[in-house]
Amino acid sequence: MEITTCATDADYEDWRRVRIAVIPYERTQSLAELRAGDTPDRLLLLAREGDTVLGHGLAQRADSANAGGVIPRVLAEHRRRGVGTALLHRLADHVASLGLPVVRASVDDEPSRLFAERFGFEEVNREVEQTYVVDAAPDVTPAPAGVEVVTAQDHPGLWEGCFEGFGREALAGFSVDTPLDVSLERWTRDWLGDPMFLALHDGEVVGCAGLGLDADDPTRAENSLTAVRGDWRERGLAVHLKQRAIAWAAGHGVAEIYTWTQDGNAAMRSLNTRLGYATTRTGIQVARALPLD
């Protein structure tokens, strides 16, 4: 077995194929999106045996403060041969090289959870996947008086410009064990939906909701960040924005939308349920201190 870093477009496409095979129920970033995310802090790995791809890995700074995220994945037919262990050690070493004291990962099935526990990972958060079947455009409730809704794509710079105020408040509201520490660069690159609907009042962003489209399955999409500024909550703005996203999906051939919501975010889970989302899966986030034994 040989573990190498992704360098060529062919490497990136092999990396994508592993992700699609292991978690077919989630969108996988396109080649262009993966390339756009290239930074010195991020490591993408491929495990091969000759010309056969066995698995892949990802390590980078996590959105959680003072932590790195790792994702080792092995194709089903090549498991229980030490491939995942070898990948995990390489990824954890990379996180340690960034000077980060904690490594985090996500598991959403029993074998993955048991694998993580073998290496001392412990549960720190839970989240649920909720799924909406798009069969028709919903009736969109009116936006609150004084609010204009635009898309970030039609107003370049607006998403970046709202980071220090609206963005930081939205990120601080996540129900997680460790506060999020997201840079402007990652906010701009990783947190922007396409489309992303922005609610404006007096020229300031007070709410957002959008979609992440699936390049490999145009009938599916993931909800991007849905958030409303504190002084605009309980006025129906989140409902309006989310319905705008669903209506857009209905008009563009999207048949299913899914979203992940933290276990402690009862308000958003309740809103999704009221809109017609069904709970379909549970994800567990785990963490442990470095170095990896």
Results as ranks from 00 to 15, higher is better:
203 G>F: 06
224 S>M: 13
226 T>E: 05
220 R>T: 15
227 A>L: 11
210 G>D: 09
205 V>Q: 01
245 A>F: 08
245 A>P: 09
197 F>P: 00
194 D>E: 14
192 L>W: 07
250 A>I: 10
239 V>I: 10
226 T>F: 06
200 L>M: 08
243 Q>T: 13
195 P>A: 01
230 G>F: 06
195 P>M: 00
249 A>I: 03
229 R>Y: 07
224 S>H: 08
209 A>E: 01
240 H>Q: 13
211 L>A: 10
228 V>R: 03
216 D>Q: 14
240 H>G: 12
191 W>D: 04
220 R>I: 12
209 A>H: 04
198 L>K: 00
236 G>I: 07
196 M>R: 03
200 L>W: 01
248 W>S: 11
222 E>R: 14
234 E>Q: 15
245 A>W: 03
245 A>Q: 06
215 A>V: 11
198 L>W: 03
202 D>H: 13
205 V>Y: 03
190 D>R: 08
203 G>A: 03
224 S>W: 12
223 N>I: 11
219 T>H: 07
250 A>R: 03
231 D>R: 10
201 H>G: 01
243 Q>M: 12
246 I>P: 07
221 A>C: 10
190 D>S: 12
214 D>H: 11
193 G>H: 02
188 T>L: 04
240 H>D: 13
209 A>V: 06
195 P>D: 03
239 V>N: 11
211 L>Q: 06
233 R>W: 08
239 V>C: 14
224 S>N: 09
222 E>H: 11
213 L>A: 10
214 D>Q: 10
244 R>V: 15
237 L>W: 09
233 R>V: 12
212 G>W: 12
200 L>I: 02
221 A>V: 09
207 G>E: 04
216 D>Y: 15
230 G>R: 13
193 G>P: 07
244 R>W: 10
208 C>S: 11
235 R>I: 09
206 V>R: 00
242 K>A: 05
198 L>H: 03
232 W>C: 02
251 G>M: 06
228 V>P: 05
214 D>P: 09
206 V>A: 00
241 L>C: 09
204 E>I: 01
221 A>G: 09
242 K>G: 04
245 A>G: 06
218 P>F: 07
199 A>H: 01
202 D>M: 02
225 L>A: 04
210 G>W: 05
187 W>A: 02
244 R>K: 14
205 V>I: 02
248 W>A: 07
222 E>Q: 14
194 D>C: 08
220 R>W: 08
195 P>K: 00
203 G>H: 05
188 T>M: 08
249 A>F: 02
203 G>K: 02
225 L>M: 15
226 T>A: 11
223 N>R: 07
210 G>V: 07
238 A>F: 10
235 R>A: 13
244 R>D: 10
229 R>D: 14
199 A>M: 06
202 D>A: 13
236 G>H: 03
205 V>F: 02
